[in-house]
């Protein structure tokens, strides 16, 4: 038995310690906003926050995450109103939407570390997240817009 702190709630998980954090989050706890994309940390669809940092949950094991504070898209904001989420809605960024939880989690953590990024910094920060609908033009705008909202707040 392991205990995980996810979105402010303690979850008791009955799974082997080497189970990928991604599968614990998605398949055991059914927080399915976090997506499986590649399993090798190259697409970003499974991005969650571990102690505030954006990490690929397919590259972590359950045992790595015990004692940490984990946030998934479901807990990014209690009302789904994080500036990144508001910007994503305002700019109508998602198409199929499958990669967008990971995009938003990555963007949110990035903006915590850099509240006023240049375009080049945005592209560098977001290049680990693949979007096959190719919403890239809008993702770039979305990160900019969210940064602006965070500064106004």
């Amino acid at each position: 038995m392991a205990v995980l702190n996810i979105n402010g709630v303690s979850h008791v998980v009955d799974a082997p310690g080497d189970t990928k954090l991604l599968w614990v989050v998605r398949e055991h706890l059914r927080l399915t906003g976090t997506k499986f994309g590649c399993g090798i940390g190259l697409c970003g669809a499974c991005t969650v926050h571990l102690n505030g940092e954006a990490v690929r949950s397919c590259q972590l094991q359950l045992s790595d995450a015990e004692g940490a504070t984990i946030t998934t898209i479901e807990g990014l904001d209690p009302k789904g109103q994080h500036p990144v989420q508001k910007a994503w809605l305002e700019l109508q960024i998602p198409q199929c939407g499958y990669c967008q939880s990971g995009q938003m989690m990555n963007a949110a953590a990035f903006l915590e570390s850099n509240s006023s990024p240049s375009d080049a910094e945005i592209l560098d920060a977001m290049q680990g997240n693949i979007c096959r609908c190719s919403t890239y033009a809008r993702i770039k705008q979305g990160v900019r817009r969210a940064a602006q909202m965070m500064q106004e707040a």
Partner: peptide
């Protein structure tokens, strides 16, 4: 379809 795609639902 977008609102459900920004909050994980």
């Amino acid at each position: 379809d977008i609102p459900a795609k920004i909050n994980g639902t």
